[in-house]
């Protein structure tokens, strides 16, 4: 089943409430995906830094970790812990070496990197996951969330969405892909880093590869209709944008709402009912095989 929620804020006055609104939207989707939950938040930039979100074991000493990373890359690494995850602020020019250092360790996993993107995901009931990460207190311009009912891979933090395979890029998926094994091999050969056996991460990797080749998100989404075999509704985040795509058969539900203040996506209308002004919002069902995309100017 799985549930997806996405919120793209147009009115800056609403930005401090991004996390609270997104957590509220996700709360109504617990029944669609009680296994695990994840949140991608596009928050404030740190000048000169790239934010790397890592997932620890639950007992990870992130202060010691940040100090060790700082020593390895020769720079101070400020960090903010959120439950089992921490956001490490690494000088932009040290991103690659920091990433290799993190990838070489078995006790932490890289969840996302980017100027603005932070991803928090864990196994557990979505309401608990949101509360433990402190999602309601987070501010930002846009965010996407996922509640998972596992089908193609195990119930682990690795299998939880959103997936990020490129800087400031992330994807959540409701559905299942059939050609993910062959496509994963292809993407790995093309130098896209894919860290799990999950089918949705392959979709994220596919979009990252197409964007890297210079395509617009709209074009990448359109091309995915030919190259991905399976059923899906995707919500995709980039540093400034927010996109939605459904496969041509469109067996997975989707509903959208737009007001002067925001554009919102959800698996069910129920999830939108907590948004301000929803009663007078334009509400519609995104058409199959048509990509929708919004961008901050």
């Amino acid at each position: 089943m799985c549930g997806i929620a996405g919120l793209f804020i147009k009115d800056k006055a609403l930005e401090p409430q991004l996390g609270a609104l997104l957590a509220r939207m996700t709360s109504t989707l617990c029944g669609r995906g009680p296994d695990s939950a994840g949140f991608a938040i596009y928050g404030a930039e740190r000048p000169g830094a790239i934010k790397i979100t890592v997932q620890g074991t639950g007992t990870t000493d992130f202060a010691a970790l940040a100090a060790a990373l700082g020593q390895a890359i020769g720079a101070e690494v400020p960090f903010a812990q959120h439950w089992t995850h921490a956001v490490l602020a690494v000088p932009r020019e040290k991103t690659e070496i920091a990433e290799s250092w993190i990838d070489a360790r078995s006790d932490i996993a890289l969840v996302s990197k980017g100027a603005r993107l932070e991803i928090f995901k864990e196994v557990g009931y979505p309401d608990d996951v949101a509360a433990n990460f402190g999602i309601p207190a987070m501010a930002g311009t846009h965010g996407i969330a996922h509640t998972r009912m596992a089908t193609e891979s195990a119930v682990t933090t690795d299998g939880a969405h959103p997936f990020s395979t490129g800087a400031d890029q992330c994807l959540v998926h409701n559905g299942s892909l059939s050609n993910h094994a062959s496509l994963r091999r292809e993407l790995l050969a093309d130098g896209i880093r894919i860290r799990t056996q999950n089918d949705s991460e392959v979709a994220a990797g596919y979009i990252s590869r197409e964007l890297r080749a210079g395509k617009s998100l709209g074009q990448a989404l359109e091309d995915s209709l030919c190259d991905l075999d399976g059923f899906f509704t995707f919500v995709i985040g980039t540093e400034d944008g927010f996109g939605v795509l459904r496969d041509p058969i469109a067996c997975k539900p989707a509903v959208m709402a737009e007001t002067d203040q925001y554009v919102a996506f959800a698996s069910e209308y129920k999830s939108l009912t907590g948004l301000p002004g929803i009663k007078t919002a334009r509400v519609w069902e995104p058409k199959p095989a048509q990509s929708y995309f919004w961008e901050h100017a």
Binding site: E268, Y269, K270, S271, L272, T273
Partner: peptide
Amino acid sequence: AFRVLNPNGEH
């Protein structure tokens, strides 16, 4: 006659 208020997208 029944009137249902605040259905809020319930199934």
